[in-house]
């Protein structure tokens, strides 16, 4: 084995460190997206025991609405975001009212097929409204990327992380501090008990649906500037977000956060040190691993469905 002279070794170290840092930044950006999507899954599962396979399509709706409001109609940023989220939440509420609530026997398998049907429906709707093309919108701000020890952190990544933090703190406050939030949590723990103390369970489920799809819309909003929005973008994002939710622990807000970032960072490191072709496998290998080893997720909820 040859000895590497000290200065060169030092330089190599530095470049590797810089590389790893860049992978981390990539991972954090993607991770934040996965986390926002995962939160949507988790919130819904928490309140309704339902997994919405159409969640990725609500992300797509958010992204494409943002293209229309911000990109085409040139509304200012904040109204565009708010309008988008409202639109997507309304779509979610309509879906809950018309499809989910009409189900007489809400068994998982029936609900899976209905939400899969909804995802196909929404994709078709997106194709009719926005066509088959992809769209892009400018970054929310035109700062040059931040340079940290030679690695670049994109300005949109900072936006994503900030919006993500605001949203999750907001949700946490909503659940813990407001009466409605507490009622929703109570409803999630036991519908019957909540009903007995006078919590309108149907309204709570509807609210959960609205909030969950709103989070999906928010995810769509923040990724619109970094990626291209098109009617068929939702499926893979939905599945990845789903893996993140499972990884962290389905039903837990902080689990979704940890799962999302972990998945994003491991994917980026996987590209760097294993193979970019196997990048998409990372999420699913992690999913299987966590299901086999600790099915409740990293933040284990008490009732993991396993015996």
């Amino acid at each position: 084995m040859e000895l590497i002279p000290w200065p060169e070794l030092h330089a190599m170290d530095q470049s590797i460190m810089q590389e790893i840092l860049q992978y981390l930044f990539s991972g954090i950006t993607n991770g934040a997206i996965y986390a926002v999507i995962a939160i949507g899954f988790s919130m819904l599962y928490n309140s309704t025991d339902l997994i919405n396979f159409a969640h990725g399509e609500f992300v797509m709706l958010g992204s494409l609405c943002m293209v229309t409001f911000f990109g085409s109609m040139h509304l200012p940023l904040v109204p565009a975001i708010i309008l988008t989220i409202i639109c997507v939440a309304i779509a979610g509420l309509v879906f809950e009212r018309l499809a989910i609530r009409s189900v007489k026997h809400p068994e998982p398998i029936v609900l899976i097929i209905i939400t899969v049907g909804a995802s196909i429906f929404l994709r078709g709707l997106g194709m009719i409204i926005w066509g088959k093309d992809a769209y892009s919108i400018p970054s929310f701000s035109s700062h040059p990327p931040l340079d940290i020890a030679g690695a670049k952190l994109l300005s949109q990544s900072i936006w994503i992380i900030v919006i993500f933090l605001v949203a999750s703190v907001g949700l946490q406050l909503f659940y813990k501090k407001t009466l409605t939030g507490k009622a929703m949590e109570a409803n999630a723990i036991s519908k019957r008990a909540a009903w007995i103390v006078g919590i309108p369970s149907k309204l709570m489920v509807m609210l959960a649906f609205g909030l969950s799809t709103a989070m999906g819309g928010l995810a769509g909003v923040i990724i619109a500037p970094i990626t291209m929005s098109s009617y068929d973008m939702g499926t893979m994002l939905g599945l990845k977000g789903f893996c993140a939710a499972m990884l962290g622990g389905l039903g837990s807000l902080w689990g979704a956060l940890i799962g999302g970032f972990l998945l994003g960072i491991l994917e980026a490191l996987g590209v760097g040190f294993v193979s970019s072709g196997l990048k998409d496998a990372t999420a699913f290998v992690l999913l299987l691993f966590i299901l086999y080893v600790r099915p409740g997720g990293i933040i284990s909820s008490a009732d993991a469905n396993r015996f």
């Binding site: 992978y23 930044f25 990539s26 991972g27 994109l154 970094i226 990626t227 980026a268 760097g272 990048k279």
Partner: peptide, 12 residues
């Protein structure tokens, strides 16, 4: 991947 949102890792 055809639907990837970010490719900075590959570029790195």
């Amino acid at each position: 991947g055809a639907k990837d949102t970010d490719m900075t890792a590959q570029l790195t």
